[in-house]
């Protein structure tokens, strides 16, 4: 069970003895090609039902957001290169085949820059979904990840508004679909990890945009990558969720982004809601005491 004390080692904090090193994802969006192999591999391995195949009419994104039946979601962001160049951001990745192709007659930038990133559950160090789960269905694994136990969840839905990233959701669908009415999200392929295998999405990613491994090592690797990009002039490359001192105690699945997080549909400064819970309980205690005192006062002059 999670406590209010904030921790660096969530598996040990949850009571695991001799836990293996914490596992995670580093998703490097600078080399994502938007192929959606991760989405497909995730669906295949985890037996996730179909949840809509229509295009959304806004980009090549046809899943829209993470949800009960979309555990990897590839975001597609098209930005006019003119606006990008004007704002000082690097117009990368370059869509032009030849230098100069993306320029109009007067030399101004034309065309678009295209950002793609594969989103996933962050497996927060301080996970709101796990904190608020009333049945104990959401649990911390020995790998430091956060997993729903399908046979325990009763579909109360509290984890859904608690997650600061809008990741977890309750599966809807025709009766008969697996796990309808139950909260569902990425398990970081708990069943594969136990056998020493790589999660399906990372295995399928053809560019190693999704990297799986020990979180400590991934953080070092990510820092090298962002330094290299800065040195190459991609000044706006930034890590997201890699800082253990952020509002969720650092993410187990973190990202390298080429623009601000909200552009990708990520909150710029997520905070685990239970951080404020002790103060909220104090407020409720005072409110309850006020009610009790008020009721007593209401009877002061009463007699039969």
């Amino acid at each position: 069970m999670s406590r209010w004390t904030r921790t660096a080692d969530p598996a040990a904090d949850a009571g695991w003895k001799n836990a293996p090193p914490r596992k995670g994802f580093f998703t490097d969006s600078s080399i994502c090609i938007g192929c959606k192999a991760c989405e497909v591999a995730c669906k295949e391995w985890n037996g996730i039902p179909e949840d809509g195949l229509e295009m959304l009419g806004m980009s090549y994104d046809n899943t829209g957001s993470l949800g009960a039946s979309t555990w990897r979601h590839v975001a597609f962001i098209e930005q006019p290169r003119r606006a990008v160049a004007a704002s000082g951001l690097t117009p990368l990745p370059v869509v032009a085949a030849r230098p100069g192709e993306n320029r109009s007659f007067d030399g101004a930038e034309t065309g678009i820059r295209w950002l793609m990133s594969s989103d996933v559950c962050k497996h927060c160090t301080n996970a709101a979904c796990l904190d608020v789960c009333p049945t104990g269905s959401l649990m911390r694994t020995e790998f430091g990840t956060v997993v729903v136990q399908d046979d325990i969840c009763n579909g109360c839905g509290y984890c859904i508004p608690a997650c600061p990233f809008g990741v977890i959701d309750r599966r809807q669908g025709p009766p008969g679909t697996r796990n309808v009415g139950i909260a569902q999200k990425c398990t970081l392929c708990y069943d594969r990890l136990g056998d020493g295998m790589t999660p399906a999405c990372a295995q399928a990613c053809p560019t190693q945009s999704i990297q799986y491994g020990d979180l400590d090592e991934l953080r070092v690797r990510a820092q090298h990558r962002v330094d290299a990009l800065h040195a190459a002039g991609v000044a706006d490359a930034q890590l997201y969720g890699a800082d253990p001192n952020d509002g969720i105690g650092g993410a187990g699945a973190f990202f390298l982004l080429l623009d601000e997080p909200e552009v990708y549909g990520l909150p710029p400064d997520p905070v685990v809601t239970t951080r404020d819970l002790p103060a909220m309980w104090r407020t409720a205690a005072i409110a309850g005491a006020t009610l009790l005192a008020g009721a007593a006062v209401a009877f002061v002059r009463a007699r039969s």
Binding site: A162, P164, T273, D276, T283, A284, A287, T290, L291
Partner: peptide, 29 residues
């Protein structure tokens, strides 16, 4: 009864729902 009446304010506030979390100082009252 006082716990039953006041805890629901915390129930809503203890989420990432912006308006509920922002109301956490007054909602139980």
């Amino acid at each position: 009864a006082p716990a039953l009446a006041a805890y629901t304010g915390v129930l809503l506030s203890d989420t990432a729902t912006p308006a509920w979390h922002a109301a956490r100082r007054e909602l139980p009252f």
